[in-house]
Amino acid sequence: MQVAFELNGDPVNADVEPRTTLADCIRDRLGRTGTHVGCEHGVCGACTVLVNGEAVRSCLMLAVQAQDEKVVTIEGLSGDQLSPLQAAFRKHHALQCGFCTPGFITTAHALLTNEPDADQERIREVLSGNLCRCTGYIPIVEAILDARSHYARDGEK
């Protein structure tokens, strides 16, 4: 069946089975492979995307549920320049293998957009829904704390 939604600002449509997840649709049908699939049961958070600004696990959402919605993936968070969060992740060495990173950045972007003053405890609480096996999380938390000022100042995009 056909599904049409907005992906990173562009209208897209895809022919999917009813059982196709949003993650598989974005990756396989629409070719945006920055969204990663790590567990397919909603625990690891690597597939997190933004749906109307909310952080959503795209492995737990069906593609057909995205009809007419605004979906943003990691590719949609920056152009040629790194976004403040992306730059902060690099500066603080908040990634090693990089597989979980898109999910952490989309999750953090949703958090800081809504709560630019989130403190360390709040950040850890929200991040506890995403798994990273490489970093031990400490540099990820530092990166997000560091990027907060950009959200507080101009709300980012």
Binding site: R32, G34, E75, Q86, F89, L95, G98, F99
Partner: peptide
Amino acid sequence: DLRMVRGRGTYVA
């Protein structure tokens, strides 16, 4: 990091 933080890495999937 320049590719990985932007979702431009290429993993086997």
